[in-house]
Design a protein around this nucleic acid. Structure first.
Lengths: 152, 152
DNA sequence: TTGACGCCCATAGTGCCCCATGATATCGAT
DNA sequence: ATCGATATCATGGGGCACTATGGGCGTCAA
């Protein structure tokens, strides 16, 4: 299955490296890529990561939006100047840079969370907190209006 | 019969594996799949599971929405980070991960319960409790309907 | 030199494939 | 209907392969 799904947390070793989950790696490679890109998530203390197509997808989103010029400039800067490139070593690990730690608070462990077309990297605690909040919001929303999918 | 019906409880072996009921398996395999998609239910201490098309069905709901809206973000996060694929081994078993135990309280046995288009996985005790509660609610509801209809 | 970073190997733990066993259900012949 | 042969299924265990993780060295630049 070529989708980023589920979540795993791996430890950062003494050299600041962390293994990208093998399942996620295989998806990237199956798409014919050997490079990994990471961007700061817009609303969340997390990183959006994935293959090169991640950049183009965000670019397209920029094009389609009629934002104020300044805002679009900010976005462009955000994407291209504030984004990063992650090198996979021979064992499928990346080194956690300050760029990543700043925005996410990541210190000793990283939670990799699937997001269908890409994945995210979180501090485990913040991930858990966010997960709980999302569940609560969705449950609240469903209590008001009935969800459409065929659940009981 | 291509519907998930009835309920069975199977034991988890020493290696943390449990057999998916053959009847459920045959439905999945008839659709040409060897994997299960499982999602932590919002309101119940159970897992909603089914073939990969279960996820596809959910995804289709997201397609219509603005990908950057908060609600769509929440849904995507819930579907993809809070769910995962379960691989069936050659004997039709899945390995019970911590991901599943946390949410359901499952420890040594699993109750598989059909839900028409998909099925659920429960801790046997909690399933029984939930079943009793549902029966009671239905009976209560019917009693009220009978009262309003002027019957005894 | 010192430290950051690349590449390589070692190892423990886990996932997954394959086969064995016993219980239960199905079916056929008498 | 009884009994035995056969198929199906849940369960158990052996063992290989892969993954995460740790550590050893070189290289290159400050």
């Amino acid at each position: 299955m070529n989708r980023f799904l589920g979540h795993v947390t791996n430890r950062i070793d003494a050299k600041g490296r962390v293994s990208v989950p093998a399942h996620f790696r295989s998806i990237i490679q199956a798409a014919g890529h050997t490079e990994l890109y990471a961007l700061r998530s817009l609303h969340l203390p997390a990183l959006d990561a994935g293959g090169p197509e991640l950049l183009t997808r965000f670019d397209n989103h920029l094009d389609g939006q009629d934002l104020f010029a300044e805002n679009a400039d900010d976005m462009s800067f955000y994407l291209h100047a504030d984004g990063g490139f992650l090198k996979l070593d021979g064992d499928g690990r990346i080194t956690v840079t300050d760029f990543m730690r700043e925005h996410t608070g990541i210190s000793s462990d990283v939670t990799f969370a699937g997001a269908n077309t890409h994945f995210q990297m979180w501090h485990p605690d913040r991930f858990e907190a966010h997960r709980a909040k999302v569940r609560q919001r969705l449950a609240e929303k469903r209590r008001q209006e009935n969800l459409t999918a065929g659940k009981s």
